[in-house]
Design a protein around this nucleic acid. Sequence first.
RNA 1: GGCCGAGUGGCAGAGUGGUUAUGCAGAGGACUGCAAAUCCUUGUACAUCGGUUCGAUUCCGGUCUCGGCCUCCA
Length: 454
Amino acid sequence: MTLRIYNTLTRQKEAFKPIDSKHVKMYVCGPTVYDSAHLGNARPVVVFDVLYRLLTHLYPKVTYARNITDVDDKIIKAAKKNNESIDTLTKRTTDKYHQDMAALNALSPDIEPRATQHIQQMIDIIKILIDKGHAYAAEGHVLFSVKTDPNYGTLSGFDKDQIISGARVEVAPYKNDPEDFILWKPSTDAMPGWESPWGVGRPGWHIECSAMAKAYLGETFDIHGGGIDLVFPHHENEIAQSSCCNDGKKLANYWMHNGHLGVNGEKMSKSLGNFFTVSEKLSEIPGEVIRYVLLATHYRQPLDWTGDVAGQAKNILDKFYNALDGNERQVVDINSGLLESLQDDLNIPLALSHLHELVSEIHKTGDADQKNKLQNELRVSANLLGLLYQDPHQWFKSAQGQAIEAGEIETLIQQRRQARADKDFALADKIRDELTAKGVVLLDSSDGTAWRYK
RNA sequence: GGCCGAGUGGCAGAGUGGUUAUGCAGAGGACUGCAAAUCCUUGUACAUCGGUUCGAUUCCGGUCUCGGCCUCCA
């Protein structure tokens, strides 16, 4: 089976044919570093992380680029509000982002370019666009002339004329046409600015991705990903800029977009106050649980973070890790059903069902070698999803907010052992209940009593 | 208003023109001094109204509901 991908450009699943089958290139829109990442920001990171792992499994070489946008008006505003410098803010937020995404077990991209380090490349593209008649300078701004691009709207399906009819913003006076968008804008002394042929200024929102993708992946590359909300205007404008700059060449062959994340049936937003940051959630539940929740819904579907989705995910991961207990590592193949599921437009929920099948087989087989092999199959298969990478013991003893220390638990277990030897089951049960109340589970076996945090 | 997506059993969530998704939770049983884990059994879902069809949750059309986007960002 070959990899099939739903392409937003064509609105259908297509067989994936890389430009160079020896080297696949992918670009995903990264964060604007003005604030902590929220769960919605984490979804594309985790989803495309699985795609990256899958591509790496299927192809000899993969280059994955994900940008850091460190120049933006939101950053200017946030820095002012926090009373800190822009550099301090972007550095702090970027570090936090890396920390949060690592806690979700997302691999680092191969390249993580920063917008502020590619201003010259942006200026170069803008110059070419002006030379080719696709852009014009006006009052210190440079604007892209949408009507000069006959293909504008192919990604989003929007009609150029309709875009304006529903517009909710006032049209700036320096625009030739209302639908034109900014490539470059002037900066005051209080704003970050760079010398340019159009005066001191800063880039518009979309140009950075065009510049950095071109710099690292070339004029046309394989896959471009991001959240569904970026389809318009961000990706539409990226395509317009890049293809008009590069003689009509396609920017990317496949466009993939993940669905939105909601909370309790509502859109996650600051104004509604239903806004969870990743680090906030990480203080409550393990990163792997968050990752599981983000993967348990197909990436193109909307995902609703309701009250107990995390609890369900925790139970499932407990079950998986329990099945992995006692495993001795050996090299085995990834489960074929899981691999096929992933190759069908990244059907991760279906892939997870194959993990459950493996768990069931592990418990049912009576053969120790077979069991060990199946456990390894479970582990390496889950690893392709970035799951089950911990040692089971580590997993079960790293619960958040533990109310009792390991030493104390051991002491109580010894007391209970004596009570059981004395057939004083009332006392033994009292100790069990006491520990249960503190989130500790006791596991009796012929070898003695082990324990876990629940 | 325009474009797009979605409505599946208590919950989460795949998929399919006719045959079990899967999981979580629940119930009953086995095992266990008691538990946990595990195993067995159990629950006959696909918004609504029409149409096509031998047969539709699955295709087509209407309706209702929900969500996203409709530019330089709240």
